[in-house]
Simulated scan of single mutants.
Amino acid sequence: MGRPDPSGDFAGLRALYINCTLNRSPVLSHTQGLIDRSAALMQRNGVEVDRFRAVDHDIAVGVRPDMTEYGRQSDEWPELLQRVLAADILVLAGPIWLGDNSSVMRHVIERLYGYSGVLNDKGQYAYYGRVGGCLLTGNEDGLKHCAMSILFSLQHIGYTIPPQADAGWIGEVGPGPSYLDPGSGGPENDFTNRNTSFMTYNLMHLAAMLRREGGIPARGNLRSEWDAGCRMENANPEHR
């Protein structure tokens, strides 16, 4: 999995992996197997790792930070959101079904979206200064399509995406073994392991860079200034 980074630049970073499997714990999750490889590499480099399966929690449907304020009887997302906000790195991971992301993945992205309009202490959108990536498993095609959808969603709500921010494993097209099944070749697949390592290090590198720089500079991206009439590309003489 690689040697620990001798500079110690990653110490103090926190990462969260959300597993969007359809299987509740303790049922086997093939996606968890790939998560564990990436998470172990982060931990070896001093990154604090958190993880959970979304289906193990009562996450209400909706696009508001707390759906109990909109008629739902219960919603664990507000507590889970605190774990999202505590992380410098967010990795969304899940299976491929019918060539697309799982329903659980879309559910999690919708709930992440529900907080994206909140502002941070700089006045930027809440997820600015955080880094995102994704991991995928399946025994059909669709890996790049799923990654494209996830990474677009993450950057759209404010996450910064490093180079090569996705990795995954798919078996032969058609019915066959999944990632952790005996004889699948998944855990030994050099292409998957290389991409997982590159993705993991790129996430750590970019998160450390953002931390050193204090996040994304607050220039030209503040909603309050735009609403007040400030236009970086065209000075407004009426604005004071």
Rank of each mutant, 00 (worst) to 15 (best):
M199Y: 02
S25W: 10
Y159V: 04
E76K: 03
G129Q: 11
H30P: 03
G117R: 14
A54N: 08
G214R: 11
H145E: 13
P4G: 02
R212D: 14
S38M: 07
V104G: 02
S103T: 09
L22H: 09
G46F: 01
R211S: 06
V131S: 00
L180K: 03
E238Y: 14
M232A: 07
G132H: 14
M204I: 02
R219P: 01
N101A: 14
M42N: 00
Q124Y: 14
I157P: 01
G183R: 13
V49C: 09
G168T: 00
G176R: 13
D5L: 05
A147G: 08
A86G: 02
Y127N: 02
M105Q: 04
P4H: 07
L180C: 09
N19R: 07
G123I: 12
H156C: 06
M199R: 01
P177E: 10
A235V: 07
E213A: 08
N45W: 11
S184E: 11
L98E: 12
N202Q: 07
R211E: 12
L22M: 08
Y159T: 02
V173H: 03
A60R: 09
D88R: 05
Q155S: 15
L90Q: 01
G114E: 11
N45Y: 07
V55E: 01
C134K: 03
T21H: 15
A126L: 15
W226A: 08
C146I: 07
R37F: 00
L151P: 01
V63M: 11
Y159K: 02
H57T: 05
G114Q: 06
L222G: 01
A126V: 09
T21R: 06
R37L: 01
E79N: 08
S224G: 02
P26C: 14
D141N: 06
A147H: 06
A147F: 07
R64A: 10
F10N: 06
V27Y: 10
L41H: 04
H107D: 04
T137F: 10
L41R: 11
P237E: 10
P95A: 15
